[in-house]
């Protein structure tokens, strides 16, 4: 599904990713862990096309297409979804209106007719129930005045609405208490199919108790330096990243 080859990327002239390789197949969950400043968030920003980052070398092939040639909205319509570490507040734009626009832009990209009002509302109802999203929240402005848990749940709700093939969860656990974490993780697990894949970026092993990865990668100084099974996360939790210095 996704093939990253020798990816180099920089921000404001500073190189952050220094030759990253990663291959992801359908149905897989990949966890990416690593010390602060290793390039974890840079990776999610580069994959989604954030304008502040420049790719200086390498390639990314997503479902047979050159991902780096696409503008951010086309990447999203092609099926890449980022659950933001810090979801942005959009005053005056309701979650309903935002999602109606997003869902119909994606449908247009796929050559489908826009959803009729009744169909859209039915879809909203189903997805709200699936991820336990409060009715009151969807009528409010996007993320405005939402608690940390509500913001993250809104991310997962949007993911449910847009049905991406590749979802990137960027520190979805940050700022969540254990109950909120479990609810968000359950939402992610319910959305998993044999044809979707996820990249889970996290500092802590505890999220991986709920979203169980097939592979755990350690990202350090812009490269993947170690790959293992889910047991690698436990080892990192116990011993930290001291091995990097050896």
């Amino acid at each position: 599904m996704l093939e990253i080859k020798n990816l180099h990327a920089s921000i404001a002239g500073k190189e952050i990713l220094k030759g990253l390789n990663l291959t992801i197949h359908e149905g897989e969950v990949h966890a990416i862990m690593g010390p602060n400043g290793a390039g974890k968030s840079t990776l999610s920003n580069v994959l989604t096309g954030h304008p502040a980052y420049t790719v200086t070398e390498g390639e990314v092939i997503f479902r047979g297409k050159n991902l780096l040639d696409m503008v951010p909205e086309v990447r999203a319509r092609e099926g890449i979804f980022l659950s933001f570490q810090y979801p942005v507040e959009i005053p005056g734009v309701s979650v309903v209106n935002f999602m109606r626009t997003a869902v119909n832009e994606k449908r247009q990209h796929e050559g489908k007719q826009p959803l009729k009002a009744a169909e859209f509302l039915k879809l909203m109802r189903e997805k709200k129930a699936l991820v336990g999203m409060d009715n009151k929240l969807t009528n409010r402005s996007v993320n405005e005045g939402f608690s940390g848990g509500e913001k993250k749940r809104n991310e997962i709700f949007q993911m449910a609405m847009l049905e991406p093939c590749l979802s990137i969860l960027d520190e979805t656990d940050s700022g969540l208490d254990i109950d909120a974490l479990r609810i968000v993780a359950e939402g992610v697990n319910k959305l998993k199919t044999p044809h979707t894949a996820s990249i889970v970026i996290t500092h802590y092993q505890r999220l991986l108790d709920y979203i169980v990865p097939d592979f755990v990668h350690v990202l350090a100084d812009g490269k993947i330096v170690r790959t293992g099974s889910k047991d690698l996360a436990l080892e990192l939790e116990a011993n930290g990243y001291a091995f990097l210095n050896n």
Binding site: V71, P72, E73, A76, T101
Partner: peptide, 22 residues
């Protein structure tokens, strides 16, 4: 906010319109 909307598949012009209407 514009990038957030683009990441959900909304093109830049439409995102700007939504923000300014709001």
């Amino acid at each position: 906010a514009i990038f957030y909307m683009q990441q959900r598949g909304i093109d830049r012009d439409t995102a700007a319109k939504l923000l300014l209407c709001a």
